[in-house]
């Protein structure tokens, strides 16, 4: 590679720019709060099984609706289950459901968007027609209908959310692939005899993955809102599973006497969505080359 000495000259400059950007990101109060909130939720989700918490689903009616105490830091719910334990285990369900859905959505969107943008023609027309049709529905309305018809369960919520939400992403990916397809590196790859699959996977996908992950982070909050909403309607996690949307629904009957039961999952959903929104905004600024990092 010594034939291109300028490449060696530019690398250190790039990495110091990267360092400056990361320093900037960590100094931006919004991004920092977002990162903290998301990290707390991820830690709760990961550590839930090994933390010294009560069983989140074990019913103990003699302990129902207890106020906060040293034994139950957040009190107990209407079934006598420890609210703190349900909060922590709920992070596992809510965040897990959202991440899994996001992964499936990203998979479908990448596949459809890449095929559509790379091959074009009637395949593109047909796929984009399906995308346009799905986008013609109000997403939550279609989500409720799909989950409702498949029947209430966690798996069906993932299916409903994925089936409905991929369309918008697929269109964005298609646009990215369309513009990436005309770049010199794709011509170069084709000139050396790379197959279509190889070009899409190793050359195009790798180059659009960065912006796509930003997009996904930005929308994670939106997906969490949707999933917790479906669970709130009783379409997602079923009793006795601890899930924030379902906990919120359970709390409704005890609003007058135990408003804390409403506040705990309510603040948890709010905090997690806020965290992803702030982090997404920060990452977007971070990726924006026109942004000057002070």
């Amino acid at each position: 590679m010594s034939a291109f000495p300028q490449a060696n000259v530019r690398l250190p400059a790039l990495s110091s720019d990267m360092q400056r950007r990361i320093r900037w990101l960590l100094r931006d109060p919004g991004s920092l709060i977002g990162l903290t909130l998301v990290t707390i939720a991820i830690l709760m989700a990961l550590l839930a099984p090994i933390l010294p918490l009560d069983n989140p689903t074990e019913i103990a009616l003699e302990n129902r609706l207890l106020p906060a105490s040293s034994e139950h830091f957040l009190g107990t719910d209407h079934m006598g289950r420890d609210e703190l334990s349900r909060l922590v285990h709920g992070a596992r369900a809510t965040l897990g459901l959202a991440s899994l859905s996001l992964l499936i959505i990203m998979g479908i969107a990448l596949l459809v968007g890449a095929v559509s943008g790379y091959y074009g023609g009637w395949l593109d027309t047909g796929l984009m027609l399906i995308v346009d049709l799905l986008l013609a529905f109000p997403s939550l309305v279609l989500g409720i209908a799909v989950a409702g018809i498949l029947g209430p369960s966690i798996l069906n919520v993932i299916i409903a959310v994925s089936a409905v939400w991929w369309a918008g992403y697929a269109r964005v990916i298609r646009g990215m692939v369309l513009s990436a397809r005309q770049r010199e590196y794709v011509d170069a790859a084709r000139a050396v005899g790379a197959t279509d699959v190889r070009i899409v996977v190793f050359h195009i996908a790798r180059n659009i993955l960065g912006p796509f992950i930003v997009l996904a982070t930005l929308d994670m909050g939106f997906i969490i809102l949707g999933i917790a909403g479906l669970s709130f309607l009783g379409l997602g996690a079923q009793p006795p599973t601890a899930e924030w949307g379902a906990m919120l629904n359970d709390s409704r009957a005890y609003m007058q006497t135990d408003p804390g039961l409403l506040l705990v999952p309510g603040i948890a959903i709010f905090g997690l969505v806020l965290g992803f929104n702030l982090l997404g905004d920060g990452i977007r600024d971070f990726m924006d080359p026109t942004n000057r990092y002070r």
Binding site: G221, L225, A228, G229, F232, L248, S251, R252, M255, Q256, P259, L262, G266, I269, F270, V273, L274, N277, L278
Partner: peptide, 22 residues
């Protein structure tokens, strides 16, 4: 705006109900 984008309508609904109705 940050608050409004992150608070779900169903949480807001329950909170408003708790404060202004209950």
């Amino acid at each position: 705006a940050l608050f409004g984008a992150a608070v779900p309508s169903y949480v807001m609904a329950l909170l408003l109900m708790l404060v202004f109705a209950v």
